[in-house]
Amino acid sequence: MDETTPVEQLFELLDDLTKTIQQELNITYLEAIAEAGEDIFQGTVVQRISAEEKDRLEQSLEENMPEAMEQEDIRKAFQLALIKGMKQSVQQHHAITPDAVAIFMGYLVDKLMNGRKEFVVADPAVGTGNLLSAVLNQLSEKNIEAYGSEVDETLIKIAYTLANLQEHAVQLFHQDSIEQFGAPDPDVVMSDLPVGYYPKNQIAELYQLGSTDGKSYVHHLLVEGMMNQLKPGGFMVLLIPNNLFEDEKAAELQAYVKRQAHTLGLLQLPETMFQAKEASKSIWMLQKKSPDVKQPGQALLAELPSFSRQEALQDMMKRINDWFVQEGFINK
Rank of each mutant, 00 (worst) to 15 (best):
Q47Y: 00
L82Q: 02
M69E: 10
T128V: 10
I83R: 07
S60K: 14
M69G: 08
F104C: 04
H94L: 08
V121N: 06
E62Y: 05
A100L: 14
G106V: 13
A100Y: 06
L136D: 02
H93M: 08
E53Q: 13
P66N: 14
M65A: 10
G129R: 07
P66Y: 12
L112W: 10
F78Y: 08
V121K: 04
L108H: 04
I83S: 01
D99I: 12
M113I: 02
L108N: 04
I96E: 11
E58D: 04
H94S: 06
I49N: 01
D110C: 00
Q91N: 15
I96R: 06
L132E: 04
E63G: 02
A102C: 11
A122K: 09
V46R: 09
L61E: 00
V109W: 00
I103S: 14
F119Y: 14
Q92M: 09
A81V: 01
H93W: 11
S50G: 10
I49S: 00
E67C: 04
V135G: 04
E118L: 00
A68R: 14
S60E: 08
G115V: 08
L82G: 05
F104I: 05
F119C: 07
A68Q: 15
G115S: 07
Q138H: 15
I49R: 01
G115H: 13
L108A: 06
L108C: 05
V101I: 14
A95T: 13
F119Q: 06
V120S: 11
Q79C: 09
E63P: 01
L57F: 00
K54M: 09
I49H: 00
G115T: 08
P124N: 09
D99H: 12
